Simulated scan of single mutants.
Amino acid sequence: MTEYPPPPPEIPKPQDVHFSDDVWNQVLTHMPDTDESLREKAEAAQRTQQLVEELVAAQEYPLRPLESVRRLVEPFVGAEIAGVNTAWDGRLLIDWRGDGKQTTSAESPDGRSETLDISLFQHSVDYVMPLPSGNWLRYQARVTPEVDRTLTPAQRARTAHTPDSAWVIDTSGHVIASGSLGDACLEASVGSAGQIWVPYFDEAPQRGLAGIWERNAHGDMEFVEDSIVPTESVAEDSGYGRFTAGYTGMTIFDENLRVVGRHDREKSDTDICEVYMSATDGERYWYFSYPDWNIDCVGPEGQAPPIHDDRHKAGFLIAAGEQIAFFSGPGPDRDSLFLRKSDGSEEMSIVTMPNGAALTPGMVAAWGGTLHYVADNVWYRVDALTSLAPE
């Protein structure tokens, strides 16, 4: 895990409250960049590159060279790759942006199979992905309920209306279904049966359920009596229920944007503040969360028992069937792959460019056991879940 310096004098550590290193890491990574911090990050990146090259040269661990799939062609002049993801069937999704335009393309090894021009729809969105039905899901990460300020806080909590922040559209831009996936959404994954797994980040998507605090006439925070809304009383189709859709940390929707499942706290006692990483093979969905550092999985059999792992708090999760791996870590482990074995031990290998050199800067996505890597508009991939250990 990245080591950060002690908090600066202007942010003193309270003597009566204990803050773990994880908490301080969260605080400091959200602080704005300065010229000095940008310079320090550039220097750190150079040091990391050197450490990775030394690790590759030492030949202490087996190498996993990437396979070049093909060059990705820009859909319009000036288009640059802003992000990568994977579709419900394993195709690579590319978010292209430039000159005020935005397009999402679905790529297969044989060529581009589908393209959606984001300008087809009037609402700005954060995430776009195809669905098995042939339609597309578009949604916003944040949503704020509309409330009647003439009501008491307790009444507002129960009558708030949540505006639409998610839409299912066809390839012509016509709306097939609309709704809300809740507030504080992260990037979703879509399964081969059309299930939409949505994780959430640490903006407390459950807020309000435990009561409301407001400033009184003296400027002090004061708890509003009768403002607690029991979770079991929040109807899914109410505005308030839609706002708090992510209160368990992971929620499952169907293609009509209806809630069909959640992280099951009765079968897994993982307390989710934020989902750090997630992965799918089309049938199952794995999600690795803070602060318990558990890997949870939900699939056709329901909620699986969690797997604890506090060694990989940064990186990328890859999973399929019964196998799990983490890609990337701090320092020399930047290009390393950690394949988890059934006994909890790990097999380490190093992902390289096809020629065996350390990776050049790129973007990562995964589907099933395949790790995808995009660098300089070239699509690479590698089988990440096959053991390289000698038999």
Rank of each mutant, 00 (worst) to 15 (best):
G134V: 06
G134Q: 08
G134C: 06
N135S: 12
N135Q: 10
W136V: 11
W136N: 06
W136Q: 07
W136K: 01
L137Q: 12
L137W: 11
L137E: 09
R138W: 03
R138M: 15
Y139F: 13
Y139D: 05
Y139G: 05
Q140H: 10
Q140R: 15
A141H: 08
A141G: 12
R142D: 13
V143Q: 11
V143M: 10
T144V: 12
T144N: 14
E146W: 07
D148E: 14
T150Q: 10
T150D: 14
L151V: 03
T152S: 15
T152R: 02
A154D: 12
Q155E: 15
Q155A: 15
Q155Y: 03
Q155T: 07
R156W: 03
R156P: 02
A157T: 08
A157H: 03
T159G: 03
A160I: 01
A160P: 01
A160D: 04
A160M: 15
H161V: 13
H161C: 06
H161N: 11
T162Y: 07
P163T: 05
P163D: 01
P163G: 05
D164Y: 04
D164T: 07
S165V: 03
A166M: 06
A166T: 06
V168G: 01
V168W: 01
V168R: 02
I169C: 02
I169G: 01
I169W: 02
I169H: 00
I169T: 06
T171S: 14
G173L: 02
H174T: 12
V175C: 03
V175T: 14
I176Q: 11
I176P: 01
I176G: 00
A177M: 04
A177V: 06
S178C: 08
S178V: 05
S178G: 08
S178M: 14
G179V: 02
S180T: 10
S180K: 02
L181M: 15
D183K: 15
D183M: 12
D183A: 12
A184H: 14
A184D: 14
C185Y: 03
C185W: 03
L186A: 11
L186D: 11
L186C: 11
L186W: 10
L186F: 07
E187L: 12
E187Y: 09
E187Q: 15
A188K: 01
A188P: 13
